[in-house]
């Protein structure tokens, strides 16, 4: 299988000016600046085969956006190498740029005062797309995202979610082979997130495109990505299947059940994570889950007992809480 993205020992250091608080320090800074090196991305390596959808996870400031920017040619790496579709991104060759796209959920590129249709025409000019082919793709996307009645309204009159749909259409009109999606669903409601997600999945299926996606919404990642790369403090913490991530980082399971005799003392069984009347959720160490379950069933009157892995959000949160030294 061919590789769409190949990253090896990729590193990005920033020099950031640094000073103490206060006027005196600020005045000194006018003449002599102290700089500190920040390792935004510190020696990371991973490969993405063509057509795969990979979730890129990490807390704010972990280095996700920096990595995406290096892969899309916006930033020059300090060290290591990156290749996307066999191009070196930072050379920004037109042949390379024609085959990728970058979507940033918190920034928009469509003309604010014009209907999206006009902005789409502009994309056609920028990418030099053939008129018939462009129309076909555009109308197809408009139909899938059901925005037929909205593309003729000025973008400023659209809701956040509607605008994001337009942004995504605009970003995909040239049918890129590699998609870098940086928080594409940020700030959107659940239905709208789902729409965007489905669309990305469909695009991936239809065109065999490779997708690297960052998101804070685990639902996005669960729905789209089998594989996740977790980055923290500029280093890769985990690279593998989503289920393996949960397996590896989750030390606990939840045991939920309904008590028929609500007076029972539960402390010998584990930590009570939630208790709502007779409905109880216990948090127990993973290796003790089966033992606790059998003890519960024999010593108490319980119904509807289920054992589940921790929600993925909780697992991720516990991974992100790992301090820098341990990472």
């Amino acid at each position: 299988m061919s590789l769409a993205v190949n990253v090896s020992s990729l590193t990005k250091h920033y020099q950031v000016p640094e000073r103490e608080a206060g006027l005196k320090a600020a005045a000194q800074g006018l003449f002599k600046r102290r700089y500190r090196t920040v390792k935004a991305v510190d020696d990371i390596s991973f490969q993405i085969p063509t057509g795969e959808v990979v979730g890129f996870l990490g807390p704010n400031g972990a280095g996700k956006t920096t990595t995406l920017k290096m892969l899309s040619g916006l930033l020059h790496p300090t060290g290591g190498s990156a290749s996307v579709l066999d191009f070196e991104p930072f050379r920004r060759s037109h042949d390379f740029l024609r085959q990728i796209t970058l979507v940033m959920g918190n920034r928009n590129q469509l003309s604010w005062d014009l209907p999206a249709l006009d902005s789409f025409d502009l994309q056609r000019a920028i990418y030099g797309l053939h008129a018939d082919e462009f129309k076909k793709t555009r109308d197809e996307f408009i139909e899938i995202l059901e925005v037929g009645s909205l593309v003729k309204q000025p973008v400023r009159n659209l809701s956040l979610g509607e605008r994001m749909k337009m942004e995504i259409i605009g970003a995909l009109l040239h049918k890129p082979k590699v998609l870098f999606l940086d928080e594409p669903t940020i700030g959107l409601d659940v239905t709208m997130q789902k729409r965007i997600r489905t669309f990305v999945a469909e695009y991936n299926q239809r065109y065999g495109a490779t997708v690297l996606l960052t998101s804070h919404y685990m639902a996005d990642v669960e729905a789209l990505c089998k594989r996740v790369v977790v980055i923290h403090h500029g280093k890769i913490l985990f690279d593998g299947n989503l289920s393996a991530l949960v397996e590896r980082f989750s030390a606990f399971k939840t045991v939920a059940f309904t008590l028929t005799d609500s007076a029972s003392d539960l402390t010998p069984f584990g930590e009570v994570a939630a208790r709502d009347g007779s409905r109880v959720t216990l948090r127990v160490p993973k290796e003790k889950a089966s033992e606790v379950t059998s003890r519960l069933l024999t010593s108490l009157q319980v119904e509807d007992l289920t054992v589940e892995a921790l929600p993925i959000e909780d697992v991720i949160a516990s991974v992100f809480a790992i301090p820098k030294e341990a990472a």
């Binding site: 916006l74 740029l97 024609r98 796209t101 920034r107 920028i126 990418y127």
Partner: peptide, 18 residues
């Protein structure tokens, strides 16, 4: 200032012209 120049720089056109 706002970082939106990124969009112009990821287009297959001469950035100065754009």
């Amino acid at each position: 200032r706002n970082g939106t120049l990124d969009f112009a720089l990821t287009k297959p056109a001469d950035a100065q012209l754009l």
